[in-house]
């Protein structure tokens, strides 16, 4: 099972996990990213570079599957206007054993954050808006995968 999707629609994380669980392995790991309402944030808009986003995510999934013995991978990333509490991103992995599932899930979200062309713009209650700045910690998290 390889599933990846980029779009405005919400997704059902429980359904994705159930489908990964049905693949016959002993381990399923997942990460769900949620919009935080910090500092009076009222909405967030995600832009992306559609032609490149799909190519990058597809390449990342291929790399994860070469590196770990995975039975299934799901990567869902939302774009457009989102509110605090909304799901933004989902990564799920299934494998025979936990280490591969957990590591591949971490690898995919760390690389997704730093190598897929998405940009977040935050809008606050006082009417101000700002583009989110890339963080060095995210690059460091990615680099630990070598």
């Amino acid at each position: 099972m390889i599933e990846f999707r980029v779009g405005a629609d919400d997704f059902d994380a429980a359904d994705l996990i159930a489908r990964l669980e049905a693949l016959g392995g002993g381990a399923v790991a997942s990460f769900t990213g949620i919009v935080r309402g910090d500092d009076g944030l009222v909405s967030m808009r995600l832009d992306h570079y559609p032609a490149m986003t799909s190519a990058q995510i597809s390449t990342l999934i291929d790399k994860a599957m070469e590196r770990w013995p995975l039975l299934g991978v799901a990567v869902i990333h939302r774009v457009g206007l989102l509110s605090p509490g909304d799901r933004i991103v989902f990564v799920g992995t299934a494998s025979r054993h936990r280490a591969a599932a957990l590591e591949a899930c971490g690898y995919l979200i760390d690389w997704l954050k730093t190598s897929a062309p998405f940009w977040k713009k935050e809008v606050f209650a006082d009417g101000t808006a700002r583009w989110v700045q890339a963080r060095a910690e995210d690059d460091a998290a990615r680099d630990r995968w070598g």
Partner: peptide, 10 residues
Amino acid sequence: LALFPPVTGG
């Protein structure tokens, strides 16, 4: 050619 800021997805 695409020109953009560092990416901030995920």
